[in-house]
Nucleic acid binder design. Structure first.
Lengths: 145, 145
DNA sequence: GGTATTTAGTTTGAATTATAACATTTTGTT
DNA sequence: AACAAAATGTTATAATTCAAACTAAATACC
């Protein structure tokens, strides 16, 4: 008889597959070519800019070394700027350029449209349940970190 | 007023972070050094072996080209074997070697122990809710794919 | 039966990411 | 103040993954 914890372990193995099923077929085309990490970074920046690199790095799910490369790419494409932050000269805040804001908003719109289309395959009750499930996971995340 | 679909889109963005919080600090040490994809492949094989490569490939969440490399690594470490399958000479079934079974079971045990320790930070009610949420997502996945 | 189309898996080269060492700055301790 | 320890971000190198072209085999269609 498996414990709840064991069941959680087994079920959480399928989360990556759930993510890829949600995302598959998504073909967001913007004026500049972006990879998945660049898109995610812009999505998070679009929600709230001005945080330090480490924050976005965790959200995007990359190590800090890798995230430096992603930010370099975005800076070279003139979508993002590193600006110095508060009094701490080690820290950089990330902000969107004007061009970056436009691209970020477009990605945000397209991303939501894509997910909506995916989710449209479900009936109303399943959609409500899925939303509820994601809210629980979101709350759990806050408790765990 | 955002729709349910829009909220689902926003909340699903944090799933990768949830996964990395769940996994962080996990240091599964076995007799052979394995990367994350190799471990996941062994976990799935430990649950059910003998399927064709494409099946595991989807579960692990890699493109088929990348998955070929992962299987090569596991075969070189003598943990997995490709055996020909049914009458279709294009298909290969993956099975664990004796050594592979041992390693897979050890990883499975350690993985579940790790998740249990993580989840132990939550109270009983939150654990039940998390389990419920993951069951919903699992069911949703079946409906979506 | 023959030809096109699809499917399963591999290969190759490029893109992405991780790991570990590093420089710089801040914080803590005495 | 001085020195150790921790935090922020970068660099360099290696490992991992992707994308697209490819081989071989099965299926569909005429």
């Amino acid at each position: 008889m498996p414990t709840k914890e064991t069941k959680i372990a087994e079920l959480s193995e399928i989360l990556p597959m759930f993510i890829s099923v949600l995302l598959e077929g998504s073909d967001i085309k913007s004026e500049v070519k972006l990879n998945y990490s660049e898109e995610k970074t812009l999505l998070f920046l679009n929600k709230h800019e001005g945080n330090q690199m480490t924050d976005y790095c965790k959200k995007v799910g990359l190590t800090k070394g890798s995230f430096t490369s992603v930010v370099d790419l975005l800076v070279n494409k003139e979508l993002v700027e590193r600006i110095s932050m508060c009094n701490d000269r080690r820290k950089y805040a990330l902000v969107l350029t004007k061009k970056g804001k436009g691209v970020a908003q477009k990605i945000d719109t397209e991303y939501k449209k894509h997910i909506s289309q995916k989710v449209a395959a479900l009936n109303d009750e399943s959609i409500s349940e899925l939303l509820y499930a994601l809210e629980i996971i979101n709350n759990t995340l806050d408790m765990l970190k």
